[in-house]
Design a protein around this nucleic acid. Structure first.
Lengths: 354, 354
DNA sequence: ACTACATATGACACCGGTCTCATATTTAAA
DNA sequence: TTTAAATATGAGACCGGTGTCATATGTAGT
């Protein structure tokens, strides 16, 4: 009850209970065997002294650590914070805790964080890798025996389980729907930064989800008979000002663009604001579809049609895979693709025919 | 470069560098002194072997842990995830990492998490305490020498620094503004659960921010000459259905309620949806003010007037306080009140005069 | 009563670092 | 040249648990 200050150890408890350190440790650590008499004495002593086990020391000698490292692009983003909640809830049930860190989608920070987490001897890692072309740090983790699960992104060259959405297909679903109601000139807007503000080679896109979506977009648009669909991919929508610029370019385009796809909910919200600031009416004058079912998409008028990425489930699945690996599952790495259905809402309308 | 599997230790490096374990440790740990010759030999050996320090062992022997425990109500909530980002960024700069956990605003889970974190021997705790009336676990942490900073909430009985908004005053600002444009019957809606669905004694409200706001609401309403303002406090808006019910009760009230205050952005969004589903026009037929400048408040029409709680800064300040404590600051605990200005937007209109 | 085997317990090495202290080597001062 | 002081280094204890192994006690079996 009363909080002693200096930490007391099994040895202290043992002394009080008049048994050896080993016996006390067996009782308190819940391993080995001890007589009922000894057990009672130890537990009572621990109780009255207010003994608190030291997990650091435990991890030290067992080698197991009870902590899982999580590296996401940005916890502030609901996409990731939901996933983290899913991870957290699932890990908790398995008596694991999570150390969280932000990469800010920067490779250097991701590398740094992996290193920090490995120093902490985390039991495993859940990472949303920033760049599929630089994997040494993650490979090193695997080589050191730390299982890795990638979240929202898949890197085939990495011997790690992956949880991700059906990115390529989801683009297909959206485009098919838009095509049905007459849209041909459709813009895809994403945050990805490029040196020249133009879409480069697909292989150079570091984030797999982004690459898959753009690939899907180009493929499906081409199939639908649109020429040079690459011109309809707008990159660099990283902040408010940049997005404003992108919207301007979209609206100036001829033949006129009649629908916009926003690759995530932050971009979606920015585009929506830009459009309504400029007085455009959704869905009559412009259709809009965003990825991720964020809060804001349900308070606009019209409500915004979204590709629903169940990120809480992403997190759950990732944590479950990791737990399985920690329990010794040594089967070959798997990719878990989670369906991301299109939620129909009022922001899709028939294409203008002007 | 190549990832060895079994972890190698300072002893291994020392052997390779042909120096003693102590010397190698001094070089690798960056403490004590070593000759330039020895330093070079050790660093080179470490490099070629691919040595990775073990922070667990380090914490073990130093007693310092490099990890800070954070307990929030719900990371999924942007209010907290922003704060966590602020904490994370600030801790990072001080070479600290963060273990995060959710209390789900339940005392039992909070107690459990504090215990888990103390077992991990975290260097400090940042907590949004769920119940100001049950503090034994936090007091125990303090007694064990683990500094605690409370986030968004203040508990005077706890010898801990607190970072919070100016809750009571913010309510005053909102009410004054509404009063100016003619509102008298103003509802305050909050998530707090009570046994009978009615507002009980103020002292029984466990979350200080909630208590402060309601106290402020009652005081200011009374000063403005409104009788029985307690009848205008609506509790139990915990989910969609519950909020729907609350809105119904608000709309049926006579004399008619002309403005609604939502205690957080989740409730605000729900209320907004309810109102627009029922076809009410903001701000002509109802004014709405929410706490927290969430994304959704800027995509509605009209945009929603909010009390801006800069939670990223809450997090920053909390982390800074904690870091100061870890550095040895032993001054008496302080409360840092962060201003939460009212952001005027279109959702406040003149009161109906029917 | 004596061997056989399960149960209980204590002594002690170990995990991988830090850190104290005593000793060895170098440099500066007298 | 001798002594004092500064600099380097190694041996080994320590942090607080886990876990091995040898010994002690208890219970059967014959």
């Amino acid at each position: 009850m009363s909080g002693k200050k200096s930490s007391l150890t099994v040895a202290d408890v043992a002394r009080a209970a008049k048994v050896s350190k080993a016996t006390a440790a067996r009782v308190l650590g819940g391993y080995g065997i001890a007589s009922e008499t000894a057990r009672k004495a130890v537990l009572e002593a621990a109780e009255t002294l207010g003994y608190q086990p030291n997990d650091l020391a435990r991890s030290m000698s067992t080698g197991r650590s009870g902590l899982v490292g999580v590296i996401v692009g940005d916890i502030e983003n609901a996409f990731f914070s939901q996933a983290v909640r899913g991870i957290s809830d699932t890990l908790r049930a398995a008596d694991l805790n999570l150390i969280i860190s932000n990469s800010s989608e920067r490779l250097s920070e991701e590398i740094e964080m992996v290193s920090v987490l490995l120093r902490q001897r985390v039991a495993g890692l859940i990472v949303a890798p920033t760049d599929a072309r630089h994997l040494d740090h993650l490979k090193a983790a695997l080589a050191a025996g730390t299982p890795v699960v990638t979240l929202d992104r898949h890197v085939p060259e990495l011997e790690a389980d992956a949880i991700c959405g059906d990115d390529r297909e989801s683009v297909g679903r959206v485009l098919r729907r838009l095509h049905e109601v007459g849209h041909r000139q459709i813009a895809y807007v994403t945050a990805m930064e490029t040196t020249d503000g133009k879409l480069g080679k697909l292989e150079d896109i570091g984030i797999s989800a982004v690459r898959e979506r753009i690939t899907g977009f180009l493929t499906h648009m081409r199939e639908a008979g649109v020429e040079k669909p690459a011109n309809l991919v707008f990159v660099g929508a990283t902040g408010d000002d940049e997005t404003s610029l992108v919207v301007t370019r979209i609206l100036e385009r001829s033949p006129p663009i009649t629908a916009i796809l926003a690759s995530d909910s932050l971009i979606g919200a920015r585009i929506f604001r830009e459009l309504s600031d400029r007085g455009l009416k959704l869905p009559q004058e412009m259709s809009l579809v965003s990825w991720f079912d964020a809060d804001w998409t349900r308070v606009t008028s019209p409500r915004i049609c979204v590709v629903d990425q169940p990120t809480y489930r992403f997190g759950q699945e990732a944590a479950e895979r990791l737990i399985a690996r920690l329990k010794g599952d040594a089967s070959p790495p798997q990719v878990f693709v989670i369906p991301t259905p299109l939620l129909e809402r009022g922001s899709i309308g028939a294409a203008r025919s002007d």
